[in-house]
Amino acid sequence: MLKKLISGVTASLLALSLIGCSQDDDTSFEAEERVVNVYSARHYDSDKAMYERFEAETGIRVRTRQSGASQLLETMRAEGGESPADLVIAADAGTLWQFQEDGLLQPIAADRLAGDLPALAADDASWIGLSKRLRVIVVANDVPEDAIRNYGDLADPRWEGEICVRSSRNIYNLSLLGDLIDRMGPEAAEEWAAAVKGNFARDPQGGDTDQIRAVAAGACNIAIVNHYYWHRLANSASEDDREVTSATRIIFPDQSTGGTHRNVTGIGLAASSPNTEEALELIDFLLSTEGQGLLVVETGEIPLDPQADSMAGLDDARNAATNSAPLAVYGRNQAEAREIFDRVGWD
């Protein structure tokens, strides 16, 4: 019996290896096919539908490499000039800024695009925004109206033991603090961070959704999260999820201290892109109304095109008063933000 097992396993392994080798023969037949290679730090099932729609309309095959942003960064660095990447998609301008700083991107020529270049973009147009995301404050329903109006209010010692927020290592928090450094200056920003840290209900753990759930469960009364996490719960098929949102509400920090922090999901053109034509066509598609709709309808982000479809219940978000600093600021201040977080002990 053992002998049979050995032969069986060995045979399967050999077979698998052979199939594996023949696999890439398959992929070398690209000569006739048009492709575009996307390095995506975004992972949504709806993206697949989006790319398929693009393929159906243009005949260009979209090949994706999905990974974390920093892994993609390392990969592109290691690949250097031979990188097959055409486009990089990432959530958060701060991430894209890192790609830009490393010289991994090239400017997107506005004249080669079908439509206009969005205003929300890198200063040299090496990456552009595709959709908006706001970092908001979620509170339990029994927090009084108007008790919290903006980010500064979170530093108030009356909220001691009330705040749930994720780790400072996450790019969303880094970009937020980068924004605040720009608004208030580094010393004030550090004071703010220290005060908020003093108001923590618990050590940072989990993601944004976990913070919202913690508020609903009563472990804390305030959370700092990206808006679409709340909206996804509100639109979830699971009743438990919807109950979480009915126990909480969103506060959009107002203009008195500079507005709600806005960020983007953006796309950048790789410096050594081998399929630039096809890449630009994909960018066009993603900026079109149809593409925008497919991009955001399931994710809850805010489309840049006002006519595009979006998730239900996003009106308040779409109308929120947001800050106006150039997105590059988030990236530029990232290193300092990290150091401030480390110094105040916000892990």
């Binding site: 890439d24 992929t27 992972h43 090949r63 994706t64 490499r65 999905q66 990974s67 974390g68 097959p84």
Partner: peptide, 16 residues
Amino acid sequence: LLQPFDWETLAVRAYN
């Protein structure tokens, strides 16, 4: 980190 193009595996999917 090293997955070849278009070779996404189940583990990578789940983790992402």
